[in-house]
Every structure is written in structure tokens, then in C-alpha cells.
Nucleic acid binder design. Sequence first.
DNA 1: CATCGAGTGTGACTCAGGTTCCAGAGCATG
DNA 2: CATGCTCTGGAACCTGAGTCACACTCGATG
Lengths: 228, 228
Amino acid sequence: MVTVIEQTSLVGVAEGFPFLAGASQATRDLVTALPVRQVAPRSPVLHRGDGVDGVFLVVGGSLRVFYIAADGHEATLYRVRPGQTCILALTAAFRSDPYPAWVETEDEQLSFVLVPGAMFRELYNAEPTFRSFVFEVLSGRVFELMSRLEDLGSLRVEQRLAAFLLEVVDSSGEVVLSQARLAAHLGTAREVVFRALRTMSDAGLVATSRGRVKLLDPAGLRRLHQYG
Amino acid sequence: MVTVIEQTSLVGVAEGFPFLAGASQATRDLVTALPVRQVAPRSPVLHRGDGVDGVFLVVGGSLRVFYIAADGHEATLYRVRPGQTCILALTAAFRSDPYPAWVETEDEQLSFVLVPGAMFRELYNAEPTFRSFVFEVLSGRVFELMSRLEDLGSLRVEQRLAAFLLEVVDSSGEVVLSQARLAAHLGTAREVVFRALRTMSDAGLVATSRGRVKLLDPAGLRRLHQYG
DNA sequence: CATCGAGTGTGACTCAGGTTCCAGAGCATG
DNA sequence: CATGCTCTGGAACCTGAGTCACACTCGATG
């Protein structure tokens, strides 16, 4: 399931996970001793139904957790960024439930640390800062999923697209994703994304080119998301 | 925000929350000493934006966590049943975030214990069984929200209605909710619920009467949910 | 028993968005 | 430079579901 293409050692784990700063030396040693693993961009990490006894601490790159519907269309449930952890694997670690979604890396190379289930339980029970970290990640995910549910149930595709563009825009103000990829994130069809982008483009909010969307008016997009 | 209409003492908390059995005597005493509070059926408990420094342990009745969209329509995000806890208040207890949704009681009288934020933190840090409980509730909620998101994004209203009816059916095989209430749960319009019920009724899956839906063929409803 | 509110039953209309199909542009490859 | 893939642009169509308007029925209440 996890295609590890390379192993380096303790790079950036301590910096990426602030809870380690407040943890005991023993915990720090334990976690930083774990190998940092790498997965290539755009590669599968987990399939629905997979069992994983471990927790992913994402150091670099990002994960996309998504579903694939019966008719084949897919949609992103949430994304795991550096400093976060993959809740599902974590949950499966405690419950040994089957994994309810697919996970793949996004456009950057992923680097992560895999904390085995046993070690996770130990840390969760012994280390207050780790406990807080777990609580924050889990409850933050609940908040995030709730607001996604609300958006999905009450906003038009164009508004959800605006929100998504703002979420994934890079430092240069661009979103480097094809219309098809955007559609897969939103759970809609490519043609629908095209129409929404044309409307936005006509309104001067974005400029499109092959494989990318330049955000010309982020404030306007934010308004579009909130007030339609 | 919480309209407490009555206070009784330690009824059913120990039975409803198995984690207490494995907890220390001190913890058991602490929790069972908390008053069991009551709220009338169909009453508001929290408004969006409310701050609550505490956690609801639901002993009897149930809570409905929902949003209200800009156009006034509402939809249920999730429901909190006996033995569970209201995650949002719990999260707000740690983060002091504003509360992102509305909460109201459902058709039964609610009885619950309010664990103050400070006591929650103490228990979370000191009591392993409580920790597991919190983890289970939170991660279970994440699973639930993910599958709701998937259903909302890939199923027709009729399929989602079938799933909801199966979720809330009582022991006598009936769902005691008006079409308007069903619509509010699903985030759709009453007329749409009516049409879906007529289709189901024509197919012999349910029988409708004023204010209730009798499930004639639960297996058929399950098939409808899964395969359309 | 008259009245009123809440609930159901229904047709007609509108619209966002999904579907189908195709043209053409950009870009990498042998 | 020819081939082929990916991507964008776009028309035409279909459908699920939200909206509007209204009649009717049930049950509670004065």
C-alpha cells in the first residue's frame, strides 16, 4: 500500500511537530529515531478497505483523502498537510475498522513518519503534549468536515470552487491544477468546473491557462464563497 | 443557552458510560456527583457562535446538531445519542473556538451531565478509560461525517431518505416524524420528501400516515440506499 | 361544532448541474 | 515533423430537485 521509494533519517520531524518540544527526552528520541519515509507525487497510499496499524505524521508534501462513488466520480473528503496526521489510519489503529476511503499523495513528494500503532497508544497514554496534539487534530477534522458538509449542502459549485481555489493557492497566487483535477476535488464534472471558471474569468476574478488558474481577486473570490 | 428545567441526581450515568466502570473510584465519584440535567423535547440547546466550556454526556434522549443556511433551510450534521458526547462543546472546551452549529433536543426529553472544561481536561489527562472514550467518540464522528459527506455528494435524495429512515426507525418499525421534519434532517424541501415517500410507497417499501412513516421492507430500503 | 393550525397530496415551472459529444490548442515523444 | 495525449472551450440536452401555488384532511381547541 505504501510505496516507500527512499529512506532518509530524522529530517524536519522535530520542527514540523511542535508537540515534541514539550515532550520528554525519551519521547523525542523515540519519534526522531523513526525513519522519514518518502512517497512519489500523485501516488496511491491507501485503498479503501486497507488496514493500517499506524499513524502518518506528515512532514512534507500532502495527502488527499477521497472517495470514489459507484458511478466512478471521485471527491476529496479532506487533505492532510505537514504538521498534521492521518486520522483514519490513526482511528483504524485503535478500532481495526476497515479504512473507509482512498488516500494518495498530491503534487509534491510526500515525506512522513509512520508511528506504529503500539507506539501511538503508548505515546497517547504517556505524553500529555501528544495527547493534546491528537485531540487538536481530531477535533479540528470534525470542525472541517462539518463545514464541508454545510458548504456541499448549501452552496453552488461556483462558490465551492472559489473556496477551494483560495484553499490551495500557492504563494505566487496561482493554482496549478487542471480543470479535471479541480473537478475531482469538488466531486463534480470537468465541464461544470469549466463553466464556473468562465464565469469567474468574465468577472475578472481569475485568469485561466493550461493547467493553472491565476487568482486575480482573492477578496472577490472570498465574497463569492460567502455571499454567492 | 441550556434551559435546564429540572435537576435530579445520579441517574443512569454510570450505566450509560462504560468507561466509568474501568475508571478509578475517585473519577467515578467525581462524575456521578455531577447533577443530571434535563431539557424539554424540541428545545434549543446551543446557538451557532455560543461558547460552552464543558462537555455534554448524553444519558437519555438525543441531540441534533445542524446548520441553517443563508436561505433559511436547515440540515442535520449529526445526532448525539445516549452514551455519546457532544464533540463540539468538547472541542470548544479546548480551543475556545466559537460554536459552528446549532444544537437542539429531539423528540424525547434530554437528560445529560455537563462536565466542566477543567474537569474534562483533568479526566482526559488522568484517566485512561476516559481517554479511550474521547478518542472513540471523536474518531467515530470523523468516520460518520466522512460517510455523510460521501452520501450527500453521490446519492439521490430518495437514497439518503432511505438511509435516514433506517437510522431513526423505532422498535415498532415506525418513524414518527412529519415530512417537514424529515426534510429538515436531509437539508431538502418537504415536497421533495413527499415525492420520495410516494415512490417508496408505490414500491411497497413504506406506508405513510399523518406524522409517521411505517417501514414495510427495511431490507428493500437498505438496497435502495446502497444500489439506488 | 366551527375554526384554525399543522400536515399531506399534487401539478406546473425553473434551474443548477450532470451528460454527451466534439473541435481545437498545447506540449511531449519518437 | 508526425503522432498522440492531455487539456481547454463550448454547444445541446436531460434530469433531479428546489420553488410556487393551492386543495384537502386531520386533529386539537375554544
